[in-house]
C-alpha cells in the first residue's frame, strides 16, 4: 500500500496537471464510498476549479473552490498508486480544455478506481495525527503523545 513518500511523489506528479482545471459535471454511480456522499455533492462540485493538490499523511486531496461549501476530494491510494494513466488521460487537454469530469481520473487510473472518496471539509484531516513533514512534528510534540504510553514504540509510531 502506498504510504506517505509514495503519495507525496504522486501528488507532485499530478499537481501541474490538475491544479487550475475545472470540473464541468459529476456523475455519481453509487450513494457512497466508505461514507455516504453528502447531499447535492455532484451539483456542488460541478463548475468548480481545483485550486490545489496536496497531501495529508497518505491521503491525496484536491481542494475545490465552492460557493456554498468546500470539499476535499480525497484519494486514498489503496492499491498501487497508479497515476500514470491519469496523467496521460489529461495530456494534451491541459491548455486546450479542462478535464470533462473528475471521474476521468477514476476511470483511467486503475489504482484509484475503487478508492476515490469525496469528503466534506468538515471531516478534519488533522484528526489523522501528527504530520511527519510538518513543522509541528518535533520531539516535544511526540513526547506529549508518548508520555505514559505502554505500547511498543513501533505501534505508537504506526498510529
Amino acid at each position: 500500500m502506498p504510504e506517505l513518500p509514495e503519495v507525496e511523489t504522486v501528488c507532485r506528479g499530478l499537481q501541474p496537471w490538475l491544479k487550475g482545471t475545472r470540473i464541468d459535471n459529476v456523475t455519481l454511480n453509487r450513494p457512497n464510498l466508505r461514507f455516504p456522499f453528502p447531499a447535492r455533492l455532484a451539483a456542488d462540485l460541478a463548475g468548480n476549479a481545483i485550486i490545489s493538490v496536496g497531501c495529508r499523511a497518505k491521503y491525496l486531496h484536491r481542494l475545490l473552490a465552492l460557493c456554498r461549501a468546500r470539499y476535499r476530494q480525497v484519494a486514498a491510494l489503496l492499491r498501487n498508486g497508479h497515476a500514470a494513466q491519469a496523467r496521460s488521460s489529461c495530456h494534451g487537454h491541459r491548455s486546450s480544455r479542462p478535464w470533462q469530469e473528475p471521474s476521468d481520473l477514476c476511470r483511467s487510473a486503475s489504482g484509484l478506481s475503487t478508492s476515490m472518496i469525496i469528503w466534506p471539509i468538515v471531516l478534519n484531516l488533522l484528526e489523522l495525527g501528527l504530520e511527519p513533514l510538518s513543522n509541528d512534528f518535533n520531539s516535544v510534540q511526540i513526547a506529549s503523545k508518548f508520555a505514559g504510553k505502554k505500547t511498543l514504540i513501533k505501534s505508537a509510531l504506526l498510529h
Binding site: M1, E3, L4, P5, V7, R56, A57, K58, L128, G129, L130, E131, P132, F137, I142, I153, K154, L157, L158, H159
Partner: peptide, 13 residues
C-alpha cells in the same frame, strides 16, 4: 503519527 508505515518506521528506528 500520520502516514508512517512499517518500512519507514523500521528504517527510522
Amino acid at each position: 503519527m500520520a502516514g508512517l508505515s512499517n518500512i519507514y518506521v523500521a528504517e527510522a528506528l
